[in-house]
């Protein structure tokens, strides 16, 4: 039997008390995993469908608008819809341009500490909920491949910031109405809200909080980092809210642009 060698030898193992049941919880602990599975599955199905559509992702000058779906921005291939290109062109990519870029936001969310908590519980049942038995006989957590790769979250954070800059640029461009001048439409508001939520999601991220102050042992020696850390820490507590809000809204933004681009909706001018 295994032991822990300290000043007193502790023998591990031994009979445990209580009944041999997966859980004794009587509340509806399963609601949260069910909700997580439902929302994330719906998002994955929709985003996969949208990524393979390769059309209706841009509303251009022909209707005096400049709106691009966040799933397709930046549009990098040589067969992007005219006006939607980011400038840099990747020649010879035969598939949807969305497939080139979605890996980065997907990786950022997949390795996000909040989402990890959610899908480990909801999809992997490790554990399904607190004080509910793990569904697996053995467990090595994030100590081995592939889950040790979760540590690349910070790499995706760096890429995520680049995408946020790009989507902010798109939101600013949405104020421009080719042939009409500057103005605000429903589409402009949608893109601005989308970019704002994505910034909030990134800035409240644990990796960001660490990089801008949390990693310091002596915050008193870094006043600027200390102020940022103090600013972002209360917001970090709302990271879950921003994670869900930005996830749902990015899909809604794609829906809106898609409906306008396909002629189902008109992008009304507000002022």
């Amino acid at each position: 039997m295994a032991t822990l060698e300290t000043s007193t030898k502790v023998v591990l193992g031994g009979a445990r008390g209580g009944p041999d049941a997966p859980t004794l919880r009587t509340d509806r602990w399963w609601i949260q995993p069910v909700a997580t599975v439902s929302i994330l599955t719906a998002f994955v199905i929709y985003s996969t469908w949208a990524a393979f559509q390769n059309k209706n992702y841009y509303v251009g000058a022909n209707v005096h608008r400049d709106l691009i779906s966040p799933f397709y921005s930046p549009c990098l291939t040589d067969h992007c819809v005219p006006g939607s290109s980011a400038g840099f062109i990747l020649h010879g990519w035969p598939l949807s341009p969305a497939l080139l870029i979605l890996i980065f936001p997907l990786g950022f969310r997949l390795s996000c500490y909040y989402y990890r908590r959610s899908y480990y519980r909801a999809f992997w049942w490790s554990p399904p909920s607190c004080a509910v038995a793990d569904a697996h006989p053995t467990y090595s957590g994030e100590t081995r491949f592939p889950l040790i790769m979760q540590n690349v979250h910070r790499w995706f954070f760096y890429f995520g910031v680049l995408f946020n800059i790009m989507l902010t640029y798109d939101a600013v461009r949405a104020f421009q109405q080719p042939g009409l001048g500057w103005g605000v439409t429903v589409g402009t508001v949608v893109l601005v809200v989308n970019a704002t939520l994505l910034w909030m999601y990134s800035l409240t991220c644990h990796a960001c909080r660490h990089l801008f102050g949390g990693g310091s042992r002596r915050l008193s020696a870094h006043k600027l980092r200390a102020r940022f850390w103090q600013f972002v820490s209360p917001l970090n507590a709302k990271h879950m809210n921003f994670a869900w809000a930005s996830l749902i809204f990015v899909a809604l933004t794609d829906v809106y642009v898609r409906l306008v681009a396909s002629g189902v909706l008109t992008d009304y001018k507000l002022f």
């Binding site: 990890r116 480990y120 490790s126 607190c130 957590g141 994030e142 100590t143 040790i148």
Partner: peptide, 13 residues
């Protein structure tokens, strides 16, 4: 064993 923690936040709860 920090890597064993998969941050399910039950400790916080």
């Amino acid at each position: 064993g920090l890597g064993f923690c998969n941050i399910t936040k039950c400790c916080t709860e």
